[in-house]
């Protein structure tokens, strides 16, 4: 795509004045387009080709890919390495950082290293407890929490200093994100927690799976009353449910996931549950887009990544936008020649 400031999406972007990063995601959001990000599952492998193969399924349909950092407390390839591999090819990545496995020394080192390797976006998370993952015997670190992590990265970027106050020479130019979960208690506190995240430095928010629109609307209304929606971009989380059984399993076993009974009933009643799950996801995206203050969606299609392109296509949220992919560079070069 091209921007009204003359830059086109295929060129390596430079940082515009007033922007935090040189990234495509920040540009798309700030220019008022409906952004689409997707969660990229890291491989259990040391083969870079596996990373590229997983990224390719999103080509042309997402503005950025989140590389998860041991999500669900399961061990995988690190997010910093995933993002480094992907940004070599030109992909826009969101590096997730969880506080579970690293203390402030390791985290700040990764922020500097990640930014040096071309990462434009960082998502600050607390992380799941080790008990849900594949290494329950591991030591949980939690030296920082999501909000003090945001503050730490913002301090590196805006004040050129570490947590300790020691100066750094070149700050990491990153667009800062955080997560929010409006669907679990204490509900009344959630908008205030969003306010804290924004105060600590969050510029965009990706939420936990949204299957409960009324609750999400309430959260957005409260946030609007607090004047938060002008201060950050909100991308609610969505994703296709594979079947009613998976939905029930997720609800019972994955921390923080709220799926109303009505959604599960609808899946149970469908002939093709997988197709119905996708249909629900498409409808949700379209309904979310209508909510004032929603700037995009974050698609989490765990083990169904191949369905994301079709879901985005059918939802129609990209309008006329042509999104960047490694092949669009080729096309542009050919056109120019």
């Amino acid at each position: 795509m091209s921007f009204n400031d003359g830059a086109d999406d295929c060129n390596p972007v430079s940082r515009k004045p007033g922007y935090s990063s040189a990234g495509r995601l920040e540009r798309v959001l700030r220019t008022g387009h409906f952004a689409v990000t997707a969660e990229l599952a890291p491989p259990d492998s040391a083969n870079p080709e596996e990373v590229y193969a997983r990224a390719r399924v999103f080509d042309g349909y997402v503005d950025g890919m989140n590389a998860t950092d041991g999500s669900g407390a399961n061990c995988h390839m690190s997010s910093v390495a995933m993002c480094a591999l992907l940004s070599r090819v030109g992909y826009e990545t969101v590096m997730q950082i969880s506080c579970r496995d690293k203390n402030r020394l390791a985290i700040q080192g990764d922020v500097l290293g990640g930014a040096a390797l071309g990462i434009n976006n960082i998502l600050c998370l607390t992380g799941d407890g080790v008990q849900v993952g594949d290494h329950p015997e591991a030591k949980p670190v939690f030296d920082l929490d999501s909000i003090s992590l945001l503050e730490t990265v913002a301090r590196l970027r805006d004040k050129n200093e570490f947590c300790s106050g020691r100066k750094i020479s070149d700050p990491p130019r990153v667009f800062l994100g955080a997560a929010e979960n409006p669907f679990v208690p204490p509900y009344d506190f959630r908008p205030h927690r969003l306010a804290k995240k924004i105060a600590a430095g969050a510029q965009f928010i990706q939420t936990q799976y949204c299957f409960d629109l009324p609750r999400f609307r309430t959260f957005m209304d409260r946030s609007r009353d607090l004047g938060l929606l002008e201060k950050c971009f909100i991308l609610p989380g969505v994703g296709p449910l594979a079947s009613a059984r998976t939905a029930v399993w997720m609800r019972n076993n994955v921390p923080g996931i709220h799926i109303p009974d009505a959604v599960i009933k609808r899946l149970e009643g469908a002939k093709d549950q997988k197709k119905e799950g996708q249909k629900i996801c498409i409808e949700l995206i379209q309904q979310l887009r209508e909510i004032e203050g929603v700037s995009g969606v974050h698609v989490m299609a765990h083990r169904q990544e191949d369905t994301v392109a079709e879901i985005i296509e059918k939802s129609g949220v990209l309008d006329e936008r042509q999104l960047w992919s490694p092949s669009s560079d080729e096309v542009l070069r050919r056109n120019r020649a």
Partner: peptide, 15 residues
Amino acid sequence: PKTMRNGPCGGVRAN
């Protein structure tokens, strides 16, 4: 258990 000093995490159970 996560020694969070700024608010709850996103994993709080429905109850």
